[in-house]
Design a protein around this nucleic acid. Structure first.
Lengths: 272, 272
DNA sequence: AGAAAAATGTTCGTAAATGTTCGTATTTGT
DNA sequence: ACAAATACGAACATTTACGAACATTTTTCT
C-alpha cells in the first residue's frame, strides 16, 4: 500500500468514479503506475475496474444523485470544512439530508469519539467506514432520489434522542429569514432535529437565496449558526443579529489550494 | 513516547496522511528516525504504515465482511432465488441482517409493488436502486462490521410495523431446531421481526449446522418456511414436520459458473 | 559528575515502487 | 463490420525507500 493508493481510495469515495488520466495528472506519474494501483485496489475489492479508470463497487453507487452532488461542489466543501471546525471531538452530531451535509461527513473523518446520527443513507454508508466514531441511523421511508429517510417513523425516532450538534441543510432561504424546503414530509423531520439539537448549524451556500421552496421549516432565529460561502444580504444579516444567530462565511480553501500539499502528494518525485 | 511521536499522531489525525520526507523537513531529523517512529506507531496501531509515509488506520472490519460475503456464495444465491419465488408482487417484505438475506434482495429486483423493510444498510442501498419498490429503513445503532442496525431503537421501530413476509438468516442452527446468533443485541431484533411477520422464512445454508453460537433467537417452530441448500439432518426434519414448518431445499442453479472466486477480485480481467 | 539508558545519526545490503517499452485487447468512429 | 485510436498488462531497468547493525549524541538517574 502506498500513500497514492490510499489517496486514490479517498478520491474515489468522494467522486464516485476516477479516471486513469485524471489520476496521472493529479499525481504526476505514468499511466502504468496508476493502472497498477487500480489493479491492486480492484484485487482488494476497494474499487471496481473499468476501462479508463475505476468506480466504486456497485453497492455504493447512485446515478442522478451524483450529478447534483457535484453541483457547487467547491462551495460545499468550503462550507463543510467550516462546519467541521465547530464540531469538537467526543460529542453527538446529527447530520440531516442534503448534499451539503453530506460533504460535512467527509470533513469529519479525522474526528474522534463522535456519535454520528443521520437520516441520510449516503452519510450512514460513509460514516460506517470511519474507524473512530459510533453511528446511529434514523430509519423511515427511504426517498430514493437522495437517500433521505423521512416520515412519521423518522420523526418519532429523532424525538427519542438528544444531540450536541445538528447540521442541517435546506432547499431555499428567504431574505426574511425563512428556511424553506421542497418536501413537506421532510419539514417535520427537520423540525424534530432542530428541537433536539443543542447547537443547530444551518449549512447553506448562497445559491439558496435564489431558490424558492414551498414548505417552511423554520426561521434563522431557530438555528444557532449559519455557515455560508459568501456574505448574505444585509436584511438577512440584520435578522440574524437580532436573534443572536451567528453567521460564518467559509474561507475558500479548495480553489487552487492543492499545490502546497504537493510535498505530500508527490513525495520525492518533484525534483526530477 | 517522544514529543515527536505524539506530534506525528496529531499531524496524522489532522492531515489523514503523512510522508517520511515531510516529517523529515518538519522535524529536521534523518529519515531513519522518522521511519523508526512510524514503525513504532504502526506497531501500536496508531497509524498504518505505507511506502513513503503512513496513513490513519482504515476500518479493517469491512474487509472481513467482504470475505464472509463471498463464502458459500453459490449456495447463497441458490437459497436466495428460492426465497424470492415465495414472495409475490405487491406485498411487504422484511429482510434482516445477514449475507444470505443480502443475496435475496438481488433476486427480488424484478418484483413489483414490494414494500421492502430492512435493518441492513447494504440491503437498503441496493433496494434504493430498485425502481418499482418502496423501501422502509429500520434505524438503530449501526454495526460497522456488517451494516446491520440493532439495539432498542431498532426493536421498537420494528414493533410498530407489520409485514407479510420476513426473511431472516442466522449464525448457526442446532439439530434440535434452535436458531442461534453470535450477537445478543441482534437477538432482540430478530425476535421482534418474527413476531411482526405473517410468514417467516429462515434462509440458512447447511454450513450453519456445523457452527455454534451463543444466543438463542428461537426455534424452527417459530418460522413458517426454512430454505436450505441441502437436505437437513433427519432429526431436524422431524422437528420441522411436528411444528408444520415447511423445509425447502433450493435447486442448484449456479453450479459450475462460479468455481474461481478470483472472478470476484478482478471482475472483467479474469478471462484474459 | 559519571555511568547507564535512550534517542539519533550513519552506512549498506535488500526490497519495493516507478518508469520504459512493446505486443495485445478493447473502444470508438465510420 | 472494420480500422484507427486508445487502453491494457507483462517484463525488464532504474530509482527510491526500507530496515538492520553499529557509532555517536543526548538524556536520565544516582
Amino acid at each position: 500500500m502506498t500513500l497514492r493508493k490510499s489517496e486514490i481510495i479517498e478520491i474515489a469515495r468522494r467522486e464516485g468514479k476516477i479516471t486513469v488520466e485524471g489520476l496521472v495528472d493529479h499525481f504526476q506519474v505514468t499511466p502504468q503506475t496508476i493502472r497498477r494501483d487500480l489493479s491492486e485496489l480492484a484485487d482488494a475489492g476497494q474499487v471496481e475496474r473499468v476501462h479508463g479508470g475505476a468506480v466504486l463497487p456497485s453497492t455504493t453507487t447512485n446515478i442522478a444523485y451524483n450529478e447534483r452532488r457535484s453541483l457547487n461542489l467547491s462551495s460545499k466543501v468550503d462550507i463543510a470544512r467550516e462546519c467541521a471546525k465547530h464540531i469538537p471531538n467526543d460529542c453527538a452530531v446529527f447530520l440531516n439530508i442534503g448534499t451539503t451535509t453530506e460533504a460535512v461527513i467527509d470533513e469529519l473523518r479525522h474526528h474522534r469519539g463522535l456519535l454520528i446520527i443521520t437520516n441520510n443513507l449516503n452519510i450512514a454508508t460513509k460514516a460506517s467506514s470511519h474507524a473512530n466514531n459510533e453511528v446511529i441511523v434514523i430509519g423511515g421511508n427511504l426517498r430514493k432520489s437522495d437517500g433521505g429517510m423521512v416520515g412519521a417513523l423518522s420523526r418519532e425516532m429523532i424525538s427519542q434522542l438528544r444531540f450536541d450538534f445538528a447540521i442541517i441543510g435546506c432547499s431555499a432561504l428567504h431574505e426574511e429569514g425563512e428556511i424553506l424546503d421542497f418536501d413537506v414530509q421532510e419539514v417535520g423531520v427537520s423540525k424534530a432535529i432542530i428541537a433536539r439539537g443543542d447547537t443547530v448549524i444551518l449549512a447553506a451556500d448562497m445559491s439558496k437565496f435564489d431558490r424558492k421552496a414551498p414548505a417552511k421549516v423554520g426561521s434563522v432565529a431557530d438555528v444557532d449558526i449559519v455557515v455560508t460561502n459568501e456574505v448574505p444580504p444585509a436584511r438577512f444579516m440584520q435578522l440574524c443579529a437580532r436573534s443572536d444567530t451567528k453567521v460564518i462565511v467559509a474561507q475558500k480553501t479548495t480553489a487552487l489550494a492543492k499545490p502546497p500539499p504537493s510535498e505530500k502528494t508527490r513525495p520525492s518525485r518533484a525534483r526530477a
